[in-house]
């Protein structure tokens, strides 16, 4: 008897989950395992700003109930960190030293917030917004009508910013090269969008003009909890400092495998890595663009879900190429407010 194939997916986000659903459709008898560091089942991180509107029950964020995984016979390994992938033995080692064999592997571990190296020393004074737990943590410490200082200001951050403002908080974005990431906005266009930001009541502060951040410190008693000191001696105060410098792919566990890495995992348009049994999809991969002759990241909900589906198809014998379906332009809506395809999801 032929053993059913074991498809292993690293990452339980939209990409991984979509891939698992497609895999189950196409290969009903296979074993499917999703490995994730999260202790929660899949939820949309786009929903997280709702935390500030008082939606604090984690169960309400779940996209699928627990029974969904049982019905589709998808094994979930939560709280599990992948530490190594041995592509010759086709084995994954988890942080708790368990090894898992795979027949095909999909890496959809996504990206994590990038923090410029010169700010690393101040990491303990900042709050991220990557997970439900992190979001709840910010909600807990942010006083009513409190002030958030946002560094960088990528589109994830700006989404949070507009939500925070609607909830009565104030937000100051320290702008710089990562503002509007992943969109590239330059020259006059940038000026327009900056203005639009202000019309959305997002305060901005030009970080480059102030020669960059010299240090981040704890605020004095009775004062806001954080202060940012710039090299030109400007000081900004706020209750919470949050970095939003775009995403860096989470690939460190793939270094021992023979899948190529530049910043992310390098894949062809069929989302295959340089190892025939390993695929990558979502924010973790750089896809070869024949036209531009370069490896490109594709962000946004529509893109990464499509990637999950494409990868799953190709893992089960298809040869579909990923084509982006998402408009990548930053735009203004009728009210003159910023809108981004990056913010759109079903």
């Amino acid at each position: 008897m032929v053993q059913p194939k074991h498809h292993v997916i690293i990452g339980s986000g939209i990409t991984g989950t979509q891939a698992a659903i497609t895999l189950r459709e196409r290969d009903p008898k296979s074993r499917i395992t999703i490995i994730t560091m999260s202790t929660l089942l899949f939820y949309n991180r786009y929903d997280l700003p709702d935390v500030f509107r008082g939606r604090t029950d984690w169960q309400s964020f779940l996209v699928y109930p627990p029974s969904f995984y049982e019905e589709l016979n998808i094994k979930l390994r939560r709280g599990s960190r992948v530490v190594n992938v041995d592509s010759t033995r086709k084995e994954i080692t988890l942080g708790h030293k368990e090894t898992i064999r795979y027949d095909t592997l999909l890496v959809s571990s996504g990206g994590r917030g990038y923090l410029p190296e010169e700010l690393v020393d101040f990491r303990s004074l900042m709050h991220n917004f990557a997970t439900f737990e992190a979001a709840m943590n910010v909600k807990k410490i942010l006083p009513e009508n409190g002030k958030v200082i946002m560094l960088g200001g990528d589109m994830l951050g700006l989404d949070l910013a507009r939500n925070l403002i609607q909830c009565g908080y104030t937000v100051t974005v320290i702008t710089g090269e990562h503002t509007f990431w992943p969109h590239t906005v330059e020259g006059n266009e940038r000026k327009t969008f900056m203005k639009a930001l202000e019309s959305m009541k997002v305060e901005t502060f030009d970080g480059d003009k102030a020669e960059g951040i010299a240090s981040i410190e704890e605020g004095k008693k009775g004062k806001p909890a954080r202060k940012i000191i710039f090299k030109d001696d400007t000081v900004l105060e706020g209750d919470v400092v949050m970095p939003f410098f775009g995403l860096a792919p989470a690939v460190e566990f793939m270094i021992g495998s023979d899948a190529d890495i530049e910043r992310g995992l390098l894949v062809n348009p069929e989302l295959r890595t340089t190892n025939e049994h390993i695929f990558a999809a979502g924010d973790v991969c750089q896809i070869w663009d024949k036209k531009d002759k370069s490896y490109k990241f594709f962000y946004g909900w529509k893109n990464v879900r499509a990637m999950g589906e494409v990868a799953a198809k190709n893992m089960t014998g298809d040869n579909t190429a990923f084509v982006t379906t998402q408009d990548e332009k930053l735009r203004l809506d009728k009210k003159g407010q910023i809108n981004s395809p990056f913010w759109e999801y079903d």
């Binding site: 190296e117 690393v120 890495i261 530049e262 910043r263």
Partner: peptide
């Protein structure tokens, strides 16, 4: 890529810093 160059991670970090 960074992954494949013969320089220690600390040195790369300090350089970037």
């Amino acid at each position: 890529a960074e992954e494949y160059i013969p320089v220690s991670k600390e040195e790369i970090f300090e350089t970037k810093r």
